[in-house]
């Protein structure tokens, strides 16, 4: 009999179960108690970085919905990257499995490989990481428990981290409870939802989901009119297709209360700045999304009341129980 760890299927929230299709769980990496525990330990362990100073959690902290509060995260050598750290939650429902702002990696398992060797992040080698893990007092037994009598590899390490990351589920915001009939929206929040869903106003729903798609993202790549010319090509850098230049993944609008600054380059410090961008600040470019309206006027020019209400609605998508979940804190 091959070794088999203890199954621990994902606990799918009712709202997700009722409204969207099942999460993506690779058949070769099922969720297990031991795998998740190992993945969590690795996620919070600076052993992955070259100088043992940075863990995944250094730039993906629980209190920030698993991003950080800086515009660009600083790697172990004191060098800043050029993208804002992405928050991590509901990753198993990224159906296309394209990860990072530019979608350059397919699958959560492969995503976890890259930051370890990235010279402006952990700047390590996987050979060094595996060597350290093998020599550790704890890790060989943890890998044994998670995957059986096998040699520690980067593939197994990232499988474990992917298992842990798939448990990072956020589905208990005020709006979630409203959708379940357990909470009431304020007048401002309700009007903000209407602004969000109104094609003549916010028209946010085409890219950022709706009450029937509680992920609040389409996980697709768009040019949302940030720049007239691009210093960062985004998806275009990966695909090589000029039609993709300036396109970045729509982030989820959950947990915005904890994830500032915003956009792929963290250029906006506040939600007000984000809303003002869509309302008055759109920049035209050849690949701007057709859903960006009245670009020649900078946007649809929401009223101050609509902006305020939209902000109130957006904040109702934040989930304090997620960032405070004891299962997600440093071991």
């Amino acid at each position: 009999m091959p070794y088999s760890a203890t199954p621990q299927p994902i606990d799918i929230p009712t709202l997700f179960e009722e409204n969207i299709i099942s999460p993506v769980i690779p058949t070769n990496n099922p969720q297990t108690v031991e795998g998740i525990a190992l993945g969590k330990k690795l996620f919070f362990d600076p052993i992955l970085s070259a100088d043992n100073t940075q863990a995944c959690a250094s730039c993906h902290a629980p209190q920030n919905a698993f991003t950080d509060s800086t515009r660009f995260s600083i790697g172990i050598d004191g060098i800043a990257g050029n993208r804002n750290s992405m928050p991590l939650f509901n990753l198993a429902w990224n159906y296309d499995e394209n990860f990072f702002w530019d979608g350059r990696v397919f699958s959560l398992e492969h995503q976890a490989i890259e930051p370890v060797t990235n010279p402006v992040e952990m700047h390590n080698t996987w050979e060094m990481v595996i060597s350290r893990l093998q020599q550790s007092n704890e890790y060989p037994d943890l890998f044994q428990a998670a995957f059986g009598g096998v040699t520690i590899t980067k593939e197994l390490a990232t499988k474990a981290m992917a298992q842990f990351e798939r448990t990072l589920i956020s589905a208990n915001s005020k709006f979630d409870r409203f959708s379940l009939g357990q909470a009431t929206l304020t007048t401002e929040e309700q009007n903000g939802l209407n602004v969000f869903m109104d094609e003549t106003k916010g028209d946010c729903f085409h890219c950022h989901g709706n009450p029937n798609n509680p992920l609040w993202t389409d996980n697709i790549f768009h040019n949302n009119g940030l720049d007239a010319t691009f210093t960062d090509l985004g998806l275009g850098e990966i695909s090589g297709d000029p039609a993709d230049n300036g396109k970045f993944k729509s982030p989820s609008l959950r947990n915005l209360a904890f994830t500032a600054p915003y956009m792929h380059d963290g250029r906006f410090n506040t939600l007000d700045e984000v809303i003002n961008h869509y309302s008055e600040g759109l920049q035209d470019s050849p690949t701007i999304d057709p859903l960006m309206k009245k670009v020649d006027e900078g946007g649809v020019h929401l009223s101050p009341q609509d902006k305020s209400d939209l902000k109130a609605f957006l904040l109702s998508l934040s989930d304090p129980s997620f960032i405070n979940n004891p299962d997600f804190q440093i071991p």
Binding site: Y95, M197, N212, N213, D218
Partner: peptide, 11 residues
């Protein structure tokens, strides 16, 4: 659910 996941909804 598949159409919701594809953001195919009307408000």
């Amino acid at each position: 659910p598949d159409l919701n996941s594809a953001s195919w909804n009307v408000p």
